[in-house]
Design a binder for these strands. Structure first.
Length: 212
DNA sequence: TTGTCTTGCGCAGAAAGCCC
DNA sequence: GGGCTTTCTGCGCAAGACAA
């Protein structure tokens, strides 16, 4: 596969260039090198050009032509020159490519998150394996939980039901927004007192139904 | 009984610090 | 700047709980 062609598939501001591409029994291995002259210290944000050393990162990415893709990144460590910064040495970040400590690219993490939102943990993991981006149900669920919360409009139509944290022992009250079918709150107890307080704080509610 | 989610734990790899 | 060690974090496995 042509490295120059593959370079066009990377975001222009990814901060890396492809140095080699190889196909082996494990899939496609893409060698990457970082390109920035300086990197900001994650602690004090001051830029440093003092390279301390290099290290290798391996990132799993979305498959190419049905083959698993590994990004083998040669990243650098920098020295933070600020005397008042507690961080002495830091690794350069690749925010357009991946998160700190991550083992996968942001693209692959997004794909896993979408599968989790659509199918849940187990189902998402099964389809992910079929699509060539295998992972565990745990990781699918983590991706969904880590996703930023979208702002929700204040509910107008609400369903009220009870639910058990431990059957026969302790119960609570669950509130469902009927327009979107999503859980909006969990309240302690099921005697109606907590619901009364919640409704007082949400005067925009127009319709309440029993059960979900 | 089956399928799914939650929780806890351990391993592997990334990041940081230190020495030369 | 290289190499090693330590610490931190992501990820997967296993067990248990729960709902259908």
């Amino acid at each position: 596969m042509d490295a120059a062609f593959l370079q066009t598939l990377l975001p222009a501001d990814a901060g890396v260039r492809i140095t080699d591409v190889a196909i082996d029994p494990a899939g496609v291995a893409v060698q990457l090198a970082t390109t920035a002259d300086a990197a900001p210290c994650p602690q004090c944000r001051s830029a440093s050009t003092a390279v301390h050393g290099r290290y290798r990162r391996t990132l799993r990415d979305r498959p190419c032509l049905g083959r698993p893709v590994r990004l083998l990144v040669t990243a650098r460590k920098f020295v933070c020159r600020r005397a008042d910064c507690p961080r002495r040495v830091f690794c350069e970040r690749l925010p357009e490519l991946t998160a700190p400590h991550a083992h996968t690219t942001g693209e692959l993490a997004d794909a896993h998150r979408h599968l989790g939102l659509a199918l849940g943990g187990e189902g998402g993991a099964r389809l992910a394996a079929e699509l060539g981006l295998p992972t565990s149900p745990d990781t699918i669920l983590r991706r969904v939980k880590d996703a930023p919360d979208e702002p929700t409009p204040r509910p107008r139509y609400v369903g009220v039901d009870d639910w058990a944290t431990r059957k026969g022992h302790s119960y609570g009250t669950i509130l469902i927004e009927l327009e979107r079918g999503t859980v909006i709150d969990l309240l302690p107890g099921r005697d109606g007192e907590a619901v009364k307080v919640w409704l007082a704080a949400n005067p925009q509610v127009e319709v309440i139904t029993r059960d979900r």
